[in-house]
Amino acid sequence: MNSNIALPKHVKIVEVGPRDGLQNEKESVPAEVKIELVNRLSSAGFRNIEAASFVSPKWVPQMATSAEVMAAIERHPGVVYSALTPNMQGFDAALAAKAGEVVIFGSASEAFSQKNINCSIAESIARFEGVAKAAKQHGLRLRGSISCAFGCPYQGEVPLAAVADVVGRMRDLGCDEIDIADTIGVATPRQTQAVMRRAAQEFAIGGLSGHFHDTYGQALANIYASLEVGIAIFHSSVSGLGGCPYAKGATGNVATEDVLYLMQGLGIETGIDLDIVVDAGQFIAQFLGRKGASRAGNAIAAKRAG
């Protein structure tokens, strides 16, 4: 920890639990539970919540209720509700559902792209041209998400140049924000800083975000390392929802409660009420019938009960 480095004073936390977190759950989560979760998170003060995914229900059955969820949530003024849109059909559904931001995605790993969607990185991103254009025409925010930016389950190491290339492609599509994601949770702090600095050569650092998984227990350390180089947007998932399908038995997204506890300790403003998030985390963990994966959330809940 270098005390001479000025950390950002404000940080935006993008809550991804309702989409990225729940989509990995095997048991179906009813729409009313998702609606309740989004409503609780909205009242906690998040400015951006990833609430839906308009993909084929055949591929992601858990997200089949996205239109229902988006129609019933209590929308708070100034809160952006985001939806994942893989194609124009998904975009049209997101538009009809009044999403404030659409999310497109690509991989920094050629092997991952070929293995998962059967095409090259360049081809996969070219497919989003129509979505990007439509988002701009309709005045929606456009976010690009880059998976496997720190490591790949198939090819291992991912070169910095590969990450920079995809950042550049996303920038050229007109993305307002670009997520640099550690999909399998293998990153460590120095590597994190190298990747973020390289990405910042292609896109304004104020629009870059860190999306870290906690597979190897490094997510909070990587968030701190990102703060040191000026990253001020992070993704997290309430109660640590979301497994990682490419790393057996791994935990998924870093828990929102843990990130908020870190930010509080650093004196960094988020505008989010940690106590309300802890309640939301306990609510969804209880519904899923298991203990939440957030250490801070569980500690605060235990202290209250004590």
Score class of each variant (00 low, 15 high):
106 G>P: 00
108 A>P: 00
108 A>D: 02
112 F>V: 04
115 K>C: 02
119 C>K: 14
120 S>H: 07
121 I>G: 11
122 A>R: 13
123 E>R: 10
125 I>Y: 06
125 I>L: 15
126 A>E: 12
128 F>C: 03
129 E>I: 00
134 A>T: 11
135 A>S: 09
139 G>H: 10
142 L>C: 08
143 R>D: 03
144 G>F: 12
144 G>H: 13
145 S>G: 12
145 S>T: 11
149 A>L: 04
153 P>I: 05
154 Y>T: 05
159 P>G: 08
161 A>N: 11
166 V>P: 09
167 V>I: 12
167 V>K: 06
168 G>K: 12
169 R>F: 08
177 E>W: 11
177 E>A: 05
179 D>F: 10
180 I>W: 02
184 I>P: 00
184 I>L: 02
188 T>R: 15
189 P>M: 08
191 Q>P: 00
193 Q>I: 04
193 Q>S: 09
198 R>W: 00
199 A>I: 05
203 F>D: 01
203 F>I: 01
203 F>S: 02
203 F>Y: 08
204 A>R: 15
204 A>V: 12
212 F>D: 06
212 F>E: 05
215 T>A: 09
215 T>V: 05
218 Q>F: 11
219 A>V: 07
219 A>N: 07
222 N>Y: 12
224 Y>H: 15
224 Y>N: 14
229 V>T: 12
235 H>E: 14
237 S>I: 05
238 V>D: 01
242 G>D: 00
243 G>K: 02
244 C>T: 07
